[in-house]
Amino acid sequence: MASWAVSPGREKTLQDNCLSSLKQARDLERERAAANEQLTRAILRERISSEEERSKAKHLARQLEEKDRLIRKQDAFYKEQLARLEERSSEFYKVTTEEYQKAAEEVEAKFKRYEYHPVCADLQTKILQCYRQNTQQTLSCSALASQYMHCVNHAKQVSLRRDIYHPQIQVETVRENENSNSKMNIDRLLKRTRRT
């Protein structure tokens, strides 16, 4: 029979090798456990971080949806307000236009338009011609000037009578202004002709 007897030196070496292998195995097991623990912690941190990010993303998405809803609500409100303002503006324009038209018609009905007819225009033309022809002897046109003044005064009287029978027509002041303008025109012409 073969014996497996091992020498004591060899046995010691084998024991040392076994102890060393066991020690290495324990060290490896510890390192593996530490690495697994670190990996587990990293995975947990990553999960927590990704959960927080998902939670933040959901929260931000809700906030965006809320803001979008508020913006749509405000947009609808402002569109409604704008439509109301346009409607009111249109109504105001219509009423204002109608009132203006009505007032214009009332004014036209109340006051007849004044028609301008020059008073004694033919005599005025003759006087002007006379003054031009007789620049040095303006007194030779005095007979025409007298006739013109008589014509103007007669037109005033006729106008006054017409105003008495038709008081709604206010033309007296206009005719007086015409007559004074005519007198002023004659005076200006006289001054011009005397200068030349």
Rank of each mutant, 00 (worst) to 15 (best):
K12S: 10
T13L: 13
L14G: 01
L22K: 15
K12F: 05
L28F: 13
K12Q: 14
N17G: 13
S7T: 03
G9R: 12
A35W: 07
T13M: 10
R30D: 11
S7H: 07
P8Y: 00
L19A: 10
C18N: 11
L19N: 12
N17V: 04
A35I: 06
R26F: 08
T13Y: 08
L14D: 02
N36R: 08
N36C: 05
E29S: 15
C18M: 12
T40G: 12
R30F: 06
R10I: 00
E31D: 12
A5G: 11
G9N: 09
L19P: 00
S7G: 07
A5H: 13
Q15C: 06
C18E: 10
L19E: 07
A33L: 13
R10N: 03
D27A: 15
C18A: 14
K12V: 04
E29G: 14
N36D: 08
Q15E: 09
R41M: 02
E11A: 09
L14T: 00
R32K: 15
T13P: 00
L14C: 01
N36E: 11
E29Q: 15
L39Y: 04
R26A: 09
V6K: 03
A35P: 04
L14N: 02
A25Q: 15
T13H: 08
L22F: 10
E11S: 07
L22Y: 07
Q15V: 01
Q15T: 03
P8G: 00
D27S: 14
T13I: 06
L39P: 00
A33S: 14
